[in-house]
C-alpha cells in the first residue's frame, strides 16, 4: 500500500496537519496513487481521528522513540523544514517534500532545506501551496542524496596528526 509519512519532529505544526488532511490534499494524494497517510504530529494540538479523512486511510501519533520504521515504509515523506527530519528522510532515500512554516521567523534550520532544494534533493512549498504542489509534483526530477564521507575527515585528521 503506497504510504505518505508526514513528520513535524519535536515541534508543532497544526497548519500542516490541517492542510494535508484536507479533502483537496487527500484527493491529490489519492490521484497520485497513495492510499495510506501516517501523521507524526509532535506537540501540535491536532491529532486527527482515523475516520476524519474519507479519501485515504489515516493513522496519527505524537511521538515514537524512533520513526525510522515509518520512514522506511513510506513512499513519500512530507516534513517540516527541521534539519534532523530532512536528513533522516534523505538518508533513507525517500522522496521528500518540505513544507515551510512561514508563520515562524526565519531560522537557521531553513538554510539547509533551502540549499537541498536548490540542489534538487527535495521539493519545497508552504502550507498554502501544498495541495497545488501535490497535484503537480514530479518526483522523478529529484536527485539522489549521496551519504557524507566521514572517511575523508578521518584520513585528513590521521595525516595532520601524524598517525600511521
Amino acid at each position: 500500500m503506497k504510504t505518505v509519512f508526514v513528520t513535524v519532529g519535536t515541534t508543532s505544526f497544526d497548519e500542516l496537519i490541517k492542510n494535508v488532511t484536507s479533502s483537496e490534499a487527500a484527493q491529490a494524494l489519492k490521484s497520485c496513487g497513495y492510499e495510506r497517510l501516517v501523521l507524526q504530529v509532535g506537540r501540535g494540538s491536532l491529532l486527527p481521528d482515523a475516520d476524519s479523512c474519507p479519501h485515504i486511510r489515516l493513522e496519527a501519533f505524537r511521538f515514537k522513540d524512533s520513526i525510522a520504521e515509518d520512514m522506511k515504509r513510506a513512499d513519500l515523506v512530507i516534513s517540516h523544514a527541521g534539519a534532523g527530519s530532512c536528513l533522516e528522510a534523505l538518508g533513507a532515500n525517500k522522496p521528500l517534500l518540505v513544507v515551510v512554516n512561514d508563520k515562524l521567523m526565519d531560522n537557521h534550520q531553513l538554510e539547509l532545506a533551502r540549499q537541498l532544494h536548490m540542489d534538487s534533493h527535495l521539493l519545497y512549498c508552504t502550507c498554502s501551496t501544498l495541495t497545488e504542489t501535490l497535484r503537480t509534483m514530479d518526483l522523478s526530477l529529484l536527485q539522489p542524496f549521496p551519504p557524507g564521507q566521514p572517511k575523508n575527515f578521518a584520513n585528513f585528521l590521521d595525516k595532520a596528526l601524524g598517525i600511521q
Binding site: 534539519a83 534532523g84 536528513l87 566521514p150 590521521d158 601524524g162 600511521q164
Partner: peptide, 29 residues
C-alpha cells in the same frame, strides 16, 4: 599522533549534534 595514540575529548551536544559527532567517531581508527 606520532606516539601511536591520541587521547580524544569528544563534546557531544544533544540530538542532531550527537548524531553528527558519532558519525565522525565511527570513521576514526
Amino acid at each position: 599522533g606520532s606516539r601511536g595514540s591520541v587521547a580524544a575529548l569528544v563534546v557531544a551536544g544533544s540530538g542532531g549534534h550527537t548524531t553528527e559527532i558519532l558519525r565522525l567517531m565511527e570513521s576514526l581508527s
